[in-house]
């Protein structure tokens, strides 16, 4: 007689019953704006008094792991399509007291055929979707789309579009999340939630981004400085 034991936790709500489930690691990302949970299409106010409505926030973490243990080839955060979900798979959280990763896609994978990655990989063109430019520039590492009203008055007019799409090998950043806190969710799942503070992204640690003048970026020639700023500010805004 087979005894089926239902899992009480899993990556999906309707996971099939399994026997002796493997432990699961889950990484989520919670976007915030100045400490408050951020919702897409809601309106926030920048330090300059601009009204901003974020419409898309996406980024890649590639080669995430610790001390020779690797989680997966790449993870894609897509706030509109997948909410706070970033990664969920079988694994032992105790192997990852800290996590190091590339913010973006490293040059070893960045220019490979995006159709050749397995369908399960977030680097596959079907999953990358609009996060792949072309083979030469490769993947978009960080994407922030928004609509902004940069005229500080009583009238709300979000007629100013912001498209910050950063990539290219030379702009790759690394993140090093020390002292990752894994919280038990049920018996088998461990979860950690990273914070992505878009207010901090705009303010930066050393240099701020002004949507009035810095509203379009595709890492084209001549955009090296702003690309680096976007990547560094995004890196600093992402914390464990």
């Amino acid at each position: 007689m087979t005894l089926l034991v239902s899992t009480i936790v899993g990556c999906d709500k309707d996971e099939d019953p399994v026997v002796d489930p493997e432990p699961i690691i889950e990484i989520k990302v919670q976007p915030k704006f100045d400490g408050v949970n951020l919702s897409l299409d809601s309106i926030y106010t920048t330090d300059e008094g601009y009204k901003v409505q974020f419409t898309d926030i996406k980024f890649y973490l590639e080669g995430a792991g610790h001390n020779g243990n690797s989680l997966t080839d790449a993870m894609l955060f897509d706030y509109r399509e997948r909410g706070t979900a970033m990664y969920c798979a079988e694994g032992d959280a105790s192997l990852y007291p800290s996590i190091q990763a590339n913010l973006g896609v490293g040059p070893d994978l960045n220019h490979d055929d995006p159709s050749a990655f397995p369908n399960s990989s977030w680097l596959n063109i079907l999953k990358a979707n609009d996060m792949h430019w072309d083979w030469n520039p490769g993947y978009i590492f960080v994407k922030v789309d928004a609509k902004v009203d940069t005229i500080v008055d009583a009238t709300l007019n979000l007629d100013h579009t912001v498209n910050l799409h950063a990539g290219r090998d030379e702009n790759l950043q690394t993140v090093d999340f020390q002292n990752v806190t894994w919280t038990s969710v049920g018996e088998y799942k461990k979860r950690t939630t990273l914070t992505l503070d878009m207010y901090k992204f705009l303010q930066g640690t050393t240099q701020s981004i002004d949507f009035k003048t810095e509203f379009t970026l595709h890492s084209a020639p001549g955009q090296e400085a702003i690309t680096l700023k976007v990547m560094q500010n995004f890196r600093d805004a992402l914390t464990p």
């Binding site: 995006p114 159709s115 063109i125 079907l126 979707n129 609009d130 792949h132 430019w133 072309d134 379009t216 595709h218 084209a220």
Partner: peptide, 22 residues
């Protein structure tokens, strides 16, 4: 087609399938 300062089509029509899912 691919130029961001040109026709800028490829934001939505990209890759071998000539579309993004959106």
């Amino acid at each position: 087609f691919k130029s961001l300062n040109g026709a800028d089509c490829f934001h939505c029509h990209n890759g071998p399938l000539m579309q993004v899912q959106k």
